[in-house]
Simulated assay, not measured.
Amino acid sequence: MQQILVHARLFDGNQFHAGKAVILDGGIIGDIVDRPKSIGGFEPYDLTGLVLAPGFVDTQVNGGGGAMLNGGTTLEGLETIADAHRAHGTTSMLPTLISDRWQSMEHVASLISRAHRSWGENNSLSAIKGVHFEGPYVNPVRKGVHDEDVIRPVDEGALDLLTHPDLGVRVITVAPEKVGSHFIAELTRRGGIVCAGHTAGSYQDMLPALRNGLRGFTHLFNAMSPLESREPGVVGAALDDEDTWCGLIVDGFHVHPASMRLALKTKAKGKIMLVTDAMASVGARNKSFDLHGERIYAQDGQCRTEDGVLAGSDLDMMTAVRNAVELLGLPISEALRMASRYPAAFMRMDTSIGSIAPGFAADLVAFDPTTWTVRHSWINGYHRAH
């Protein structure tokens, strides 16, 4: 039976609509129609008082529900992560492996490949659109919480592992000054999406990387050389370039709201996307966890080591949307685009996800705009109430 979603305030990824209904035909959006007087023949969902929007797309998810991608997680652990973020509106995500040993990278690649083989059979795993390898080919000077013992030069076989087509969308964060532009060019040629992050490079270091396919900057401002008067740094290169995307952790802790507002005024429109950089604590009762043998604590919305170093975030995408509105003063429409349409474009998937339109995947979220809580989600047309 087809589903019909009625009485919501519809945001289609571009603009808001009133008096519209969305018809889901299996795993795709069938049509957007004027609200019918009769809904016979449909499975109806009354979304009175809710905003219906494209499901959120998060390109940087380290963990959730008590599970981390690092640490040899299983397929069940991957499902736990996806479920934890689905409850906060994320219907597409890239599980993210923080710098780790080669054996862990191989394990994660195998895990993502297995998740793709079950795509469509399990609606939670269907949220897994690929993988994000954040390191280990980064600069220890800007390592953040990454384990310096595993940061290293490029491994033999890295190109094949990082760009294997069975992995779906493949995002690779590197320090361009450490790996060189040839490596970036080859990753790009093989279908990888290369980002600069955890980098101490200069503005000049970024220029050959940009010419050779660099597509984005991982968590803008964090773990990269800053913008200064005579050395624009990586931040300057990111804001100056019109073609690349920047992820932004809008939790109020990673970046000052004024810096974020300046970035939004400077960067080309549509090129800044919300990311969570979420850790295991999101959606978990236990707010502490291990990363590379170090205990991380989530408190008051922050994840930190015992020494006080920021270690990812305790942020979810619904809260990121709220913060974009309340901290940054953005219209809710732009905040929603930053959570869906813009990251979908970054992932080269904006013809199938990130909008509510006929033929697009039936990946949607319905939330209460007064409390910023998710009430319903759909992934490939599979509904879940929250």
Rank of each mutant, 00 (worst) to 15 (best):
H7R: 14
R9E: 04
F11K: 02
G13Y: 06
G13K: 04
A18W: 01
G19P: 05
A21S: 14
V22H: 11
V22F: 03
I29G: 11
D31L: 13
I32K: 09
V33P: 00
D34A: 14
D34F: 09
R35T: 14
F42I: 13
P44V: 15
T48Y: 03
T48Q: 15
P54D: 13
Q60Y: 05
G63S: 09
G64H: 05
G64A: 12
A67N: 07
A67K: 05
L75I: 15
I81Q: 02
I81Y: 07
A84M: 06
R86W: 12
R86Q: 14
T90V: 14
P95S: 14
R101L: 13
Q103S: 12
E106C: 15
V108M: 02
I112W: 04
R117T: 13
N123M: 06
V145D: 01
R152Q: 03
G157A: 06
T163N: 00
H164D: 15
P165C: 11
L167G: 05
G168Y: 01
G168N: 07
R170M: 13
I172G: 05
V174K: 00
G180A: 04
G180E: 02
H182F: 04
E186T: 08
E186K: 03
G192A: 10
I193V: 15
H198M: 03
Y203A: 13
Q204H: 07
A209D: 01
L210H: 03
G213V: 01
T218C: 10
T218Q: 12
L220C: 10
F221L: 07
N222W: 02
A223V: 10
P226R: 07
E228F: 00
S229P: 04
E231H: 09
V235A: 11
L239M: 04
L239A: 02
E242M: 10
T244D: 04
G247K: 01
G247Q: 04
I249E: 05
V250Q: 11
H254T: 06
V255D: 06
M260R: 01
M260L: 03
R261V: 07
R261N: 05
A263Q: 09
K267L: 06
A268N: 12
G270V: 10
K271F: 06
M273R: 01
L274N: 06
T276V: 10
S288P: 03
H292N: 13
E294D: 12
L310G: 05
V321C: 00
R322M: 07
V325S: 14
E334D: 11
R341F: 10
Y342T: 06
P343N: 12
M349D: 08
D350P: 04
I353Y: 00
S355G: 05
I356T: 06
A361Q: 12
A361V: 09
V365T: 14
V365G: 07
A366G: 08
D368G: 01
T371N: 02
I379C: 14
H383M: 08
R384P: 02
